[in-house]
């Protein structure tokens, strides 16, 4: 479960001055649900997800992730979160098995359990062929599977994906989409960011539309369609953003 209440992140920059990357964002994601944050580049999606993964500290606001407080129990939050983004790369000089074992150990799992989990994940993701090969020789697809195994090794209850299909070919992107669906099927809480409208329509139970750091609207696809009198997600997005800019 994710419960964000008034999350705000202000960056202070010598050139730009004070910049509100995330501004008073509140939403709730329940287990077995996929919540999609939809926004253009620079809208504040990545910062929001980094706040919830405790990579960044919020300037204002509160949040609980898997029942743990974001500020006071950041290490326990990370222990319950699997975070996957295009920016979360892998260690090229390690083998897939060594890398997954390393993250299992950082999650304080015993070695026997790690070995069992790796077997299980390798079966599910068809990784046996390259499990003991060095990552720097991997194809994009192999890297994607290794990243997925890395995020799942500690069996997290919350999964956070930051534009996970960005820059991937169709086949690799399909693997990711299937994996996100599997997470929902296993009852995990899934938070997902993208700017691809078709992915939102395919995957998300609830959608939040983010623009200039603010969450402009949120609801299920049906609710959004009914509220804005449009079927097409892209049209809905443009209408909401244009109205917000006109109001500003």
């Amino acid at each position: 479960m994710i419960d964000a209440r008034g999350l705000t992140k202000i960056f202070r920059d010598k050139k730009r001055g004070e910049f509100r990357a995330v501004d008073d964002v509140s939403f709730h994601v329940s287990p077995g649900q996929i919540y999609g944050l939809l926004g253009a580049n620079g809208a504040g999606k990545t910062t929001t997800l980094r706040l919830l993964a405790t990579l960044l500290t919020p300037t204002e606001g509160e949040a609980t992730v898997a029942g743990f407080d974001l500020r006071r129990e950041s290490e326990r939050v990370r222990g319950q979160v699997g975070f996957l983004a295009t920016s979360t790369a892998l260690y090229g000089r390690l083998t897939a098995r060594e890398l997954i074992t390393y993250f299992g150990r950082l999650h304080r799992m015993p070695d026997e359990l790690i070995a069992t989990r790796i077997e299980q994940l390798a079966n599910e993701l068809e990784m046996h062929e390259f499990l003991d090969r060095r990552i720097d020789k991997f194809s994009t697809g192999m890297k994607q599977k290794t990243s997925i195994a890395r995020t799942l090794i500690h069996d997290p209850s919350v999964m956070i994906f930051d534009e996970p299909t960005l820059g991937l070919d169709v086949m690799a992107a399909r693997t990711i989409v299937r994996f996100i669906r599997d997470c929902r099927a296993r009852g995990k809480t899934v938070l997902y960011s993208t700017h691809v409208m078709s992915e939102v329509e395919k995957l998300c139970d609830t959608v939040g539309i983010v623009h200039q750091g603010r969450l402009l609207d949120q609801g299920s696809l049906a609710e959004l369609r009914a509220r804005h009198g449009e079927q097409d997600m892209e049209e809905i997005f443009v209408r909401i953003v244009t109205a917000a800019e006109a109001h500003a």
């Binding site: 990579l55 290490e75 326990r76 990370r78 222990g79 920016s87 979360t88 790369a89 950082l106 304080r108």
Partner: peptide, 14 residues
Amino acid sequence: ERGTLETLLCSPAA
């Protein structure tokens, strides 16, 4: 540069 720092920071290690 390789993008592995963010991956590492996602772990519960302090």
